[in-house]
Design a protein around this nucleic acid. Structure first.
Lengths: 164, 164
DNA sequence: CCGATTTGGCGGACTTGTCAACCTTGTCGT
DNA sequence: ACGACAAGGTTGACAAGTCCGCCAAATCGG
């Protein structure tokens, strides 16, 4: 067994015990991102943000640009640029929005849907794999917990003083 | 009440109900990052990764470069560059590692500790604020859940077929 | 109905993050 | 003890994300 490896692992565990939540989530996000990128690269040539947008469009629960952008938490600028890429590559179609002329609707082209169908089973399997790592009660609570945190993370002014 | 806002909010809620875990975490991470950047910017001029490194060093639970890098989930390259910035700005000190000459140890300078002391209460308040958004049982489970996910996220080959 | 404000999207400058090649040091097998 | 291999760190080229100001469309307040 590597001597320094053991030391490092012990140090890591010691730090994590007292870690702020935001750090844990950042660490997790890094690993998830790397894992997702590896999976996507193995089965095509989409980038991670491109895939995310395609995935949400493919869920067929909303097609307005704002709804999609908000749910992904994307920056306006980044969203705009990524959609342009997808449109140029012929994966998505940009249509007029029926009631709001500032927004647009997004739809998958045949090629876009093919990419979605190719990747979805892989990424769904990963999601299942992640969920299986959790205990049943953790599984049942994690979604609402993340949602609550997400709302709390939107507050810009934090009650600084100790408010008990 | 804005008409389109209501539509968008409804669409967002509809999507989130069936959202993969990784998307939720990404969305959360974006918001947390923006919130943290805003707080840091208000009380100094550190970047988010710089702050994270300082924060971990300040925890005094480990000072080896590898342990710090691993716990933050940083890329080797990014870590190296950010440490250089901190060293240049005189916030951290780079020392020899006692048993491994590939690594180094990190320590805060007086100026680095001052920055830490200035920012820590703010960020700790935020952390408390986030934790208060959770129910008691969510609070007690979230850490172990995130840790398990973090481990699962390191697996590179996912059992694709249904393995049950 | 009209100005003020908000929301949505775009473009460009800039910062961050990512990836691959490289060198050094440590570790393992024999 | 020594050669193969893994782990740590650095660098540079490149991709991704962020921030800013801009303009158009929609909403709100009289």
């Amino acid at each position: 067994m590597p001597k320094n490896d053991k030391d490092n692992a012990a140090a890591v565990a010691r730090i994590e015990a007292a870690f702020p939540l935001s750090f844990m989530i950042h660490q997790l996000e890094m690993k998830l991102g790397a894992q997702a990128r590896a999976l996507i690269a193995k089965h095509g040539d989409l980038t991670l943000p491109q895939w995310r947008i395609i995935r949400v469009i493919g869920m067929d629960t909303a097609d307005g640009s704002t709804a999609i952008r908000k749910v992904l938490g994307f920056d306006k600028s980044q969203f705009s640029k990524t959609v342009s890429q997808l449109q140029t590559r012929g994966l998505v179609e940009v249509l007029d929005h029926p009631t709001d002329r500032r927004q647009f609707r997004l739809a998958l082209t045949d090629e876009g849907r093919a990419a979605l169908d190719r990747l979805t089973p892989e990424l769904d399997a990963r999601n299942d794999f992640l969920m299986q790592a959790l205990s049943p009660e953790e599984r049942s609570l994690i979604r609402s917990a993340l949602l609550k945190l997400s709302i709390a993370a939107e507050t810009t002014d934090i009650p600084t003083g100790s408010d008990t």
